[in-house]
Design a protein around this nucleic acid. Structure first.
Length: 278
DNA sequence: ATGGTTGCTTGGCAA
């Protein structure tokens, strides 16, 4: 019991606007039928805050005494908040843009140490054609760079968690309509191929699909542009937690906190949590 | 086919 680690990834779409919701997240039951323990590690994306305006004190007050942040003005931005010690790990400047889309750290849990990578993959713009849309090219190149780095700088036998907003919904039931979404950025075949190449590189296990059958619809994002997100249910599973082979036997549970989509002034993404028995 | 909303900022992107 004492060696359980619960990790939550959440694209907050502005950390400064979600401080109260982070508190709600720490108090929410993350997995059905379990006592609430709250996340031990929080990986945030789209913090949209320079480091000097990041609400450090509020996050520390929630019990996360170890905090790594990497922000820029207006866009992007990632953070890792932890109850266990974090040691920053050097990583590439993906696509040489210096754009605050990735943080990596070693987490020293009471059980053992693991390596954590928190990513915010580019959304890719509206047109799924790399010759017409530089943002789409950037997205594909970013995922390719991830695959190349992990397959050269790391091994399948390393104990690694990769999580974040990968902005790709790979499976047929990771989207509300597989046929409609074929030509829509986030579910086009070339994006899915790129993500699958990344996933097969270190033989990553999708920790959520490890527990939820792949023929069951599961989403982590619903657009703000709908009257009733639950009724229309045009969702996508863009947020992921993956683990390398040594951590696969440690997988204990995984859940999406769908209720968070109804919280007052919430993000368009919901928190995704995975518990490991280390 | 288009528009729908939100956030960072106050005009127009980005998602």
């Amino acid at each position: 019991m004492s060696n359980r680690l619960t990790l939550t990834t959440w694209n907050v779409n502005s950390v400064r606007l979600r401080v109260e919701l982070l508190k709600m997240l720490t108090e929410a039951p993350l997995h059905d039928g379990e006592m609430n323990r709250g996340p031990d590690v929080l990986c945030l994306q789209e913090t949209k805050a320079m480091d000097d305006v990041f609400p450090r004190d509020a996050v520390l007050a929630l019990g996360y005494s170890h905090l790594l942040i990497k922000g820029m003005k207006g866009y992007n931005g990632v953070a890792i908040a932890s109850r266990f010690p974090l040691t920053p790990i050097d990583a590439p400047d993906w696509c040489a843009k210096g754009d605050c889309r990735h943080l990596a750290a070693r987490i020293d849990t009471p059980g053992q140490s693991i390596e954590l990578h928190n990513f915010y993959v580019p959304a890719g713009g509206p047109v799924p054609d790399r010759t017409k849309n530089p943002k789409f090219a950037h997205k594909l190149d970013f995922v390719t760079a991830m695959r190349e780095w992990f397959t050269t700088a790391r091994k399948q036998s390393d104990r690694i968690v990769l999580c974040g907003d990968l902005n790709i919904a790979p499976g047929e039931h990771d989207v509300w309509s597989h046929s409609y979404m074929q030509k829509i950025v986030s579910h086009t075949p070339i994006e899915v191929e790129h993500l699958q190449a990344l996933q097969s590189g270190l033989d990553w296990t999708d920790a959520v699909r490890h527990f939820v059958p792949s023929d069951q619809k599961l989403f982590s994002w619903w657009s703000y542009r709908s009257q009733d997100w639950r009724l229309s249910n045009r969702g996508l599973r863009l947020d992921h937690v993956w683990v390398t082979p040594p951590l696969k036997p440690a997988l204990l549970n995984a859940s999406h906190l769908i209720d968070a989509r109804d919280w007052t002034r919430t993000s368009d993404h919901v928190p995704v949590s995975v518990t490991l028995n280390l």
